[in-house]
Structures are given as structure tokens and as C-alpha cells.
Design a binder for these strands. Sequence first.
DNA 1: TAAGTAATGCAACCGGGTTGCAAACCTGTT
DNA 2: AACAGGTTTGCAACCCGGTTGCATTACTTA
Lengths: 136, 136
Amino acid sequence: MNDKFDKQLQTKHIKPTAMRQLVLQVLTKQKTALSLPELEEIFVRADKATLYRTLKTFEKNKLIHSIDDGSGAVRYALCSEECDCSIEDLHVHFLCSKCNKTYCLNEIPVPTIKLPVGFSLENVSMVVEGICANCR
Amino acid sequence: MNDKFDKQLQTKHIKPTAMRQLVLQVLTKQKTALSLPELEEIFVRADKATLYRTLKTFEKNKLIHSIDDGSGAVRYALCSEECDCSIEDLHVHFLCSKCNKTYCLNEIPVPTIKLPVGFSLENVSMVVEGICANCR
DNA sequence: TAAGTAATGCAACCGGGTTGCAAACCTGTT
DNA sequence: AACAGGTTTGCAACCCGGTTGCATTACTTA
């Protein structure tokens, strides 16, 4: 049963500890992106620093990506299968102003922008705020 | 000399105190968006809370707009003349990963996005990160 | 089993943001 | 000029998300 997560972690070269399996499990079943404080609420008995480092490890190894939606806390969501966190993998995120959940709109890529001369692009973040389908 | 700022404040129904004139002056001559901590560095003798409330007042009265570029601090920049902070006035912002300055790309409007069914739009933030013209 | 490395738990700290409250200030009125 | 009302300011304290140091525990491998 945990084999699936085990394998997933190993694929990304992350040692599959119990904590990591659990966090990956939660992130998998979650439809929306999770912040560290939210993760703390789910794992009430776990240590904040451990959760923090777990997320950082996942992010470093490109199992998850981070979103700063301006809600005050950085959120994290699973990367899709083929994602290698390059510019082409960037998608729009949606923050619901009612339930405060953040959605990955994986099917909506971030539009290309023509920057002024002399400006080079490394990364783009696009966050749409509004009311989500569940809250209306 | 201060008449210009005075008038500008009064137009937005903000009582023109000394502090507010000074902050507006700094924001005017600044080419990039400023955060509260950055403002504190400029006005070393001023109180953090006062600066904070000054920015909040300016924002409420649509003299400035705020940008969360994911750098950890919210930044503020003067609105352009005709701006009334509606969706049409939204523009792309640029965060330089070298000098950490945030630019308003006023001439680049935020592209329109087609959201999934059931999702409604209230606001959009688009921040491009890269190297600015001055740092290359 | 022993040594070495990695992960965890605990505590403390940092920095941006925010608020309560009292003092100072401004404005209009008597 | 003195006063009353409302606004702004300064100071202090606090909140919260994020981050780090360090000792302990768990894992791996010789």
C-alpha cells in the first residue's frame, strides 16, 4: 500500500521515511495546495521543523512546487508526472477568496510575456484570485 | 514646492500631513516599488507603525497599489494618473533576482485568462522574475 | 556490533505585519 | 484664548510564518 509512495520518493531520490510517506500521502489526496501551517493542522503531533524540512526536501527534488499566492503563507502542491519544474511546466494558480484554497490550474499555462529590452526572464508567477467552483 | 504633493493627496481625499508628503515624495522619485522595511531604511527616524498606516491609507485611497512579488515583503508603487485600481489597470510586475528591485511594467497589461467553469475572477497578479536591465 | 551519516524533535530566533493605547496635533467653535 | 472633537503619531507589544542550531534518535553499511 505504501509501496506506491515509496517508489515515488525513490524515483526522486528521496529516502522514504515514515514522515515523508505520510506527507506525500496527504499531498496526493489533496486537491489543493497546502501551506506549512495547514500541514501542521493535519499532523498535530508532528514537529513544525520536520514538516518544514520535509517540504523543502520535496521541493528541492522536484516532487512538489511552491506557490506564493499572496495569502501570507507559501503553499505546496504535487508536480505532475512529466514536470521537471522548467519554464514550460509553469501553470496558473487560483486562490479562492472565500475558502482560501489554492488550486493548480495545470491545464492553463502561464502566457508568454514580451519583456522590455534588457530584461531577462527566469521565472513567472501568475495567481488569479476569485471565487472557486465549490464556493459559489 | 510641496504644493504638488499637497494637491495630489487632497485629490485622493487624504489629509496632507508632513509625514505623508515625505512618503509620497519618496514614492514619486522612486522608479521601483518599495516595501515597508525599505521605507523604514529611508526614514530611519520615523516610526514603523506610522509608515505602515501611511501606506495603508495611500492604498485605501488608491494613490498607490500593492504588489506581492514573493520576495517576502509586500511592495507599494504609485498608481498611474488614470488608474482606479480596476481589473483593466492591472499590469505585470518584474522582480530582479539580483538587485531585488520590483518594477511596474505599466505598459504590459496582465493577459486575459480563460478560467475553468464555475471559477470567477476578482483579481490577478503576475510577477516575472529575472535580471533587470540595470543588473546585466 | 560499531561507526558514520541522515532524519527528527525541541527550542529559540528572525522579520514583516498588525494592533492598543496614550500623547500630540489639528480644526472649528465659543 | 480656551476648549472639545476627531485625527495622526509614537511607542510598545504581539502575532505568525519561516528558519536555524543543536542534541537525540534512527538508519545504513562495513
